[in-house]
Simulated assay, not measured.
Amino acid sequence: MSHFGKNGNVERNHAVKFEVKEHGELLPFLLQQMNNRSRNSIKSMLTRGQVKVDDHIETKHNYPLLPGQIVSVLKNKAAIQENTFIGLNILYEDEAIIIINKDAGLLSMATEKEKRRTAYHQLMDHVKRENPRNRVFIVHRLDKETSGVMMFAKSEKVKRKLQESWKILVKERTYVALVEGKVNQTEGTIKSRLKESKTHKMYSIQDGEGQLAITHYRRIQANSLFSLLEVKLDTGRKNQIRVHMSDLGHPIVGDKKYGAKSNDIGRLGLHAKVLSFLHPVTGQLMLFRADVPKSFLIKSK
Rank of each mutant, 00 (worst) to 15 (best):
V127H: 10
N83V: 01
I98S: 07
K154A: 08
G24Q: 08
V127N: 08
E95P: 00
E114H: 03
R141S: 10
G68L: 03
G49Q: 08
E95K: 14
L88I: 07
E145L: 13
H126G: 06
E58D: 01
Q50E: 14
E93P: 05
E25T: 08
G148E: 05
S41Q: 15
G87L: 10
T47D: 12
M124S: 14
S147T: 05
I42D: 04
M34D: 06
E145N: 13
Q33G: 00
I86R: 14
K60Q: 15
Q122K: 01
S108R: 00
H61M: 06
F137Q: 01
Y120A: 11
K102H: 07
T47A: 14
E95I: 00
L107D: 07
M109P: 00
N40S: 15
S38I: 02
P28I: 03
N35L: 01
S147K: 10
V149H: 06
K43S: 12
L91D: 04
N36E: 15
L31N: 04
M151Y: 03
L30A: 07
N101R: 13
T146K: 06
A110H: 09
V139C: 05
Y63M: 06
E93H: 02
N83T: 04
I90G: 11
E25G: 00
M45E: 12
N101V: 04
A96R: 00
D94L: 10
F137Y: 15
D103P: 00
N83E: 13
L27D: 07
G68Q: 09
G49P: 09
E93T: 06
V139E: 04
V53Y: 05
T47I: 12
E145Y: 05
F152E: 01
N83H: 13
M151L: 15
R116D: 13
F152S: 01
R116W: 03
G68W: 01
A104N: 05
I90W: 10
M34V: 02
N89V: 02
P28L: 07
Y120R: 05
G105W: 09
R133I: 08
R116M: 05
T118K: 08
E112C: 01
P67A: 06
R48S: 12
S72Y: 06
G68Y: 04
M34E: 13
I100E: 11
Y92L: 10
H56S: 14
R116Y: 11
D143R: 04
V73K: 10
M151R: 00
I90S: 12
F85M: 11
V127G: 07
K43F: 05
E95N: 15
A104C: 12
T111M: 04
I42P: 05
F137A: 02
R133C: 03
H56M: 09
M124W: 03
D55R: 10
T59N: 07
G68V: 02
Q81W: 02
F137K: 01
I98Q: 10
E93F: 03
E58G: 00
M34Q: 14
D103N: 12
K60F: 09
G148R: 09
V53F: 04
F29E: 04
E95S: 14
L65F: 02
L142A: 08
V71N: 10
